[in-house]
């Protein structure tokens, strides 16, 4: 439904680099990236706010040079941008004079019921809570009948207790209204819960995109792995592998006090011990590399380990990811 081809844009010192993206009807795509990686700029470019190089297609038709108001792309900003001089109902029905075809009372009723905002319609938007504002902003965008909905960090203004409810709601929207949703965030949990497809945007470039599980569990580049919080990233030569970089899952490393005749053990030095409620975080020196692993409290108590001691580690190859 939405296809972005080689989108490039320079604003000041920042550049979006050759971004390509495709989101199908009913699909929920999350773009995950750090603050300042260009997430909002990318959404604004898709919406038509900035002039860009490249192409944007909607349902197969090129809309790159179409004005914003003619694109049928809804936008919910992080700060929501509800019009303060209008009450809730007036905000939601803002599009009535400009898109008379979508000005349907039954559509309003349906959205009001879906988003549980029936009791808010006459309220001044300045008196709403973060979660209420969020639901009103989503209702306003959906009421205008978009074919694509762009969500810019939509959960940042919502308190943690209301987040799950809104996430459930967001997840249902793309299928219910047959629209493509593009949601940008820096929050991994949010992304993992919502996304059908995911892309990682770093320094203005998409470094990886694909199915959610594939992206989260198998980063293809060093940059993506670091961003996703993968630990123990080393050059492949550390374990005698030809790959330029590998990442070792801390849970795939076992530590022994003695050699005990077990095969495939590597001698190491225990550098640091950190206590973390139900487990210990250990750092060992393996051939000059600092390796991180976790150990349950009961095992740690049994081994009676001390910093600076010699130990042996075993690495389960299933926990080694080639980058």
């Amino acid at each position: 439904m939405l296809k972005v081809e080689a989108l490039s844009l320079t604003i000041g010192d920042f550049r979006l680099k050759e971004i390509s993206l495709s989101v199908a009807e009913g699909e929920y795509c999350v773009i995950l990236g750090r603050t300042g990686s260009g997430k909002t700029l990318l959404l604004e470019s898709i919406a038509g706010i900035h002039r860009l190089k490249g192409h944007v297609f909607l349902k197969g038709k090129e809309i790159t040079s179409r004005p914003i108001e003619a694109r049928r792309i809804g936008f919910v900003y992080q700060d929501l941008m509800l019009f303060p001089h209008m009450n809730v109902e007036q905000n939601i029905r803002f599009s009535d004079p400009y898109r008379p075809k979508t000005a349907d009372p039954s559509r309003l009723e349906e959205l009001v019921s879906l988003l549980h905002i029936g009791n808010l319609l006459t309220r001044d938007v300045c008196t709403l809570s973060g979660g209420e504002k969020q639901r009103v902003a989503i209702a306003r965008a959906l009421y205008a009948g978009p074919e694509v909905l762009l969500l810019d960090e939509p959960l940042s203004a919502v308190d943690p207790t209301g987040r799950d409810q809104i996430m459930k709601l967001l997840k249902s929207i793309s299928k219910r209204y047959h629209i493509a949703v593009v949601h940008v965030t820096h929050n991994f949990r949010e992304a993992a819960c919502l996304a059908d497809r995911m892309a990682i945007l770093l320094d203005g470039a998409i470094v990886q995109s694909g199915e959610t599980a594939e992206v989260l569990e198998h980063p293809k580049t060093l940059q993506a792995a670091r961003f996703l919080g993968f630990k123990n990233i080393f050059q492949g030569s550390l374990l005698g592998m030809e790959a330029p970089h590998i990442s070792i899952d801390p849970n795939a490393i076992k530590l022994y006090r003695d050699h005990q005749g077990i095969e495939n053990l590597h001698e190491a030095i225990l550098l640091e011990i950190g206590y973390a409620v139900d487990h210990y975080k250990l750092y060992v020196d393996l051939n000059g590399a600092r390796l991180f692993l976790k150990m349950t409290k009961s095992v740690f108590d049994r081994l009676k380990l001390k910093e600076g001691e010699r130990c042996y580690i075993q690495i389960n190859k299933a926990g080694v990811l080639v980058l």
Binding site: P67, I68, E69, G74, M81, Y98, R99, A141
Partner: peptide, 12 residues
């Protein structure tokens, strides 16, 4: 951004 949002809602 008020202007941007209003335009996405159909206003010129």
């Amino acid at each position: 951004r008020y202007e941007h949002v209003a335009r996405t809602l159909g206003a010129s």
